[in-house]
Amino acid sequence: MTWWCSASKEPWSWAFRAYPGIWIFTALLLVGYLLAFRRSPSAAGSEAAASDKRKRWAFLGGWALLWLSTDWPLGTLGSGYLATAHMTQYVLYTMAAAPLLMVGIPEWMARRALSKLRAYRTVTLVAKPLVAGIVFNVILVVTHAPITVDNLRTNQFGSFALDVAWLLSGLVLWLPVCGPLDELKPSLPARGVYLFLAAGLVPMVPGGFLTFSATPLYRVYELAPRVNGFEALDDQQTAGAIMKIGNLPLLWPVLAGIFIRWANQDRATPPPAKPRPASTSGT
């Protein structure tokens, strides 16, 4: 039985493949979240309860994206056939599932979990934009190095580790931007600059390597049975393009939103009071 998607030498077909490990992992994530929600302190009908409801939907959206990008067919294609699918998975994990999951965690749940895990200081450290940016990009580079992909994608545990690393790196990336704890978020302009540099600029470099390499870099995708005649180098170049620009559909709207909020915040701030001219006595 195959528990998690990993590379196989079988020719690609659209025949369904079951991965019970993925179902168990995603089910545990959802059940854990819903169980935690049963202890919500928000009173029914309150604004907090309405906020919790929105967060639940956000989490469900993130969870669904996580599942769809991990399971058959995208997970199967990404683990052993196409670098393009591998990169699509990565972008979905880090740029879609992770921010939605992060938005879906209410503040009370985060505080409760961090208190139980005694992890507040660690999260505080990781939420610093410099640390989060480095962690995200180190994981990006390491998990896309040919040696990592070629070795980890060929076995289920390695493939699982890769997927979990991507999810964690995505959560770390978005923690300072849309994390549940306001005291860990930098100012709005700092958030915008952080996101632009960490998620927009740095990934261009490894993406460029993939796009402009003369030969395929990943053994696992180069020697895989071809899917619809999609050649290995074309596949890799497409993957590189996805790495470079696949984040833009989310990144730029979020950046625009941040700067609009910043502008609104700035406008709402009352201007400093002008010094009143000294009164003069009339004639």
Partner: peptide, 20 residues
Amino acid sequence: MSETTTLPPSPPDSSPGPGP
């Protein structure tokens, strides 16, 4: 939009003693 929370925003593991 304000988000109501019922817990104080203090660091939960800032208790004295041999902390983590």
